[in-house]
Design a protein around this nucleic acid. Structure first.
Length: 577
RNA sequence: CGAGGUGUAGCGCAGUUUGGUAGCGCGCUUGGUUCGGGACCAAGAGGCCCCGGGUUCAAGUCCCGGCACCUCGACCA
């Protein structure tokens, strides 16, 4: 490809809409353009990288005996209704009517579709396991699309579904995907961690997330540096059970706190640190009020609360409910004399010494509260998000906090879909059983953004060789110079002949323009052909990630470049490292 | 959906307070001079000022109503 011909409109200035590095660079380096909020057109350079990421994923799926197929984006709502997800997925699913007035929807994921087919076609344990996957466009009507392709409403995903006869089979399929994902992300050049996760709307029990480490990541995770434990903060189990306060505090007393409602205000007003406060939160769990007590400096985890009370949905209660339960306006709730059938306290609450909380009375708080003496006992549970410093549940080492971009997710689904959709098989005794399923996703377009987050500098992208849109860029410094121009054409032809993916910058532009575009687009190998080098019979070779160039003889250039490309790709290959 | 903000040339923005000929920088076109890190000179092209109503002699600017986009909160690959 020639730069004079390619459709790659790079931008000098940063588009106002972009916030994070990958979004800015994907626009500036002409990888994509926005069509609507969360919807993008991929331009030739961007599409080439996306296809390379896809291909790596495809190869790793195939290696684990995955079979590629292709499902429709346009879906029949009927199986969704049977699994109950037509409502559960809610407004995140694009739904509309066809001309005949029939409801149709766009697939945000494909468990229903694939399970329906497997149910129809697979009958015997002899046909299991089956690992079926596709790389396809997904649609999710996100509440707030953000960060370019990081959270889009239309995006490309690889989704694989495993069908096994039993739990043991599922465990094996899961292991295969675990391996495949490690290999795929390594080959793309991603620095990632594997963490325990919650399975959310997809369902199932065991779930692991692959997190590309990045400061702009939307997921908070905690990891152990001693063992390999890592978890999403909402999932991380907190094992510490601090000793109860010995109750040698002075008797509880009321203090006037006019208009002091928040933890921060209270900290200032009473000069009491937040870890001595008892935050009292009123929730509605499937419509029923529930009170949760956690330490003032902690974050309540709604997921843990939901699991602890066994509810399908929990949400902060409205003011009216709060008034009914506490007898006071918002901001003065406390555990003493609370009028609620269900009260849960975090495991840390009994240990709070001389606690402070609302008195269920406007403008009044209690101080010197002790669990057991002044309130409770209540049901104790793990209700808060993990933070740095919490103990590792595996090895009791203190955890550290990181941020990650979720690029992949593995789920053990069990029979959540096979039962309602009648996806069963006959075992060797002729007995019928539901298949045991797993599902495994990789956000392809999100991977591209994550790669750029991890591989870029102020000037632009620094593509890993395996996913770069092209492998080598030949820059002719001055195209009006016949000698340079000819040398460029010759090397360009030789590189193509050698099987290197090459771009020739043959534009009649100032050298600075070409070098800046080269840095922005980030092709890993840059060869500069200019007077300085040619006078010595050489061209300059510079890796995008390095600051220094080296001179190599013109006649060796193609061979050497070919070798570098091979070595770079091998360097990312888990088999070869 | 709640809170805040922005819509003016391909991109980045000024102009809106106080209504009166549509502006700047970059990019683009043509000619010339240049050519190792975003050149210079000259001449150009390019606007439903987000949309719809209203007020006014006159609206980018004021009023009403929409829409789109961005940022902050709950969801997710």
């Amino acid at each position: 490809m020639r730069m004079s011909e390619i459709f790659a409109p790079t931008l000098r200035e940063v588009p106002a809409e972009a916030e994070i590095a990958s979004h800015k660079l994907m626009l500036r380096a002409a990888l994509m353009r926005k069509t609507m909020a969360g919807v993008y057109t991929y331009l030739p350079l961007g599409w080439r990288s996306i296809r390379k990421v896809e291909q790596i994923v495809r190869e790793e799926m195939d290696r684990q005996c995955g079979q590629e197929l292709f499902m429709p984006a346009l879906q029949n709502p009927e199986p969704w209704q049977r699994t109950g997800r037509y409502d559960d997925y809610g407004s995140e699913m694009f739904k509309f009517k066809d001309r005949g007035g029939r409801e149709v929807c766009l697939g945000p994921t494909h468990e229903e579709n694939i399970t329906t087919h497997v149910a129809d076609e697979v009958r015997s344990y002899r046909q299991l396991p089956k690992l079926l996957y596709q790389i396809q466009t997904k649609f999710r009507d996100e509440i707030r699309p953000r960060y370019g392709v990081m959270r889009g409403r239309e995006f490309i995903m690889k989704d694989l579904y495993s069908f096994d006869a039993d739990q043991k089979g599922l465990d094996k399929s899961f292991e295969r995907m675990y391996e495949a994902y490690c290999r795929a992300f390594t080959r793309m050049g991603l620095d990632f961690l594997i963490v325990e996760a919650d399975s959310g709307a997809i369902g199932g029990k065991v779930s692991k997330e692959y997190m590309a480490i990045a400061d702009i990541g939307e997921a908070d995770i905690v990891v152990c540096e001693k063992c390999s434990y890592g978890a999403n903060v909402e999932r991380a189990e907190i094992t510490a059970r601090p000793e109860a306060c010995p109750c040698d505090c002075p008797p509880k007393s009321k203090v006037e706190t006019p208009d002091v409602r928040t933890i921060e205000q209270l900290e200032k007003y009473l000069s009491v640190p937040a870890d001595r406060m008892i935050k009292t939160l009123v929730y509605l769990a499937d419509g029923e009020p529930v009170v949760a007590l956690i330490r003032g400096d902690r974050e309540l985890n709604e997921l843990k609360l939901r699991n602890a009370v066994g509810a399908k949905e929990v949400a902060l209660a409205d003011e009216e409910t709060i008034l009914k339960v506490t007898g006071a306006p918002v901001g003065f709730a406390g555990p003493v004399g609370i009028r609620c059938a269900k009260v849960l306290a975090d495991f840390e609450i009994p240990a709070v010494k001389c606690g402070v909380s609302g008195a269920n009375e406007k403008d009044v708080h209690y101080k010197d509260l002790c669990y057991g003496r002044d309130f409770g006992p209540f049901e104790l549970a793990d209700l808060r998000n993990a933070v740095a410093g919490d103990m590792c549940p595996e090895c009791s080492n203190p955890l550290i906090a990181k941020k990650g971009i979720e690029v992949g997710h593995l789920f053990k689904l069990g029979t959540k879909y096979s039962v309602p959709l009648g996806c069963t098989y006959l075992d060797d005794k002729g007995e019928s059983h539901p298949m045991v399923m797993g599902c495994y996703g990789i956000g392809i377009t999100r991977c591209v953004a994550a790669i750029i987050e991890q591989h870029s500098d102020e000037k632009g992208i620094i593509w890993p060789m395996s996913v770069a849109p092209y492998q080598c860029l030949v820059v002719v410094v001055n195209t009006t110079d016949e000698r340079q121009s000819r040398a460029g054409e010759v090397l360009y032809a030789q590189l193509k002949e050698a099987g290197v993916e090459v771009v020739l910058d043959d534009r009649d532009e100032r050298p600075g323009v070409k070098f800046n575009d080269a840095d922005l687009i980030g092709i890993p190998i840059r060869v500069t052909i200019g007077q300085k080098g040619l006078d010595k019979g050489c061209v300059e070779l510079k890796m995008r990630r390095d600051s220094q160039a080296v001179l190599i003889p013109v006649e060796d250039a193609a061979k050497q470049i070919r070798a570098i490309v091979g070595a770079e790709i091998e360097g990312l290959d888990p088999d070869k490292r």
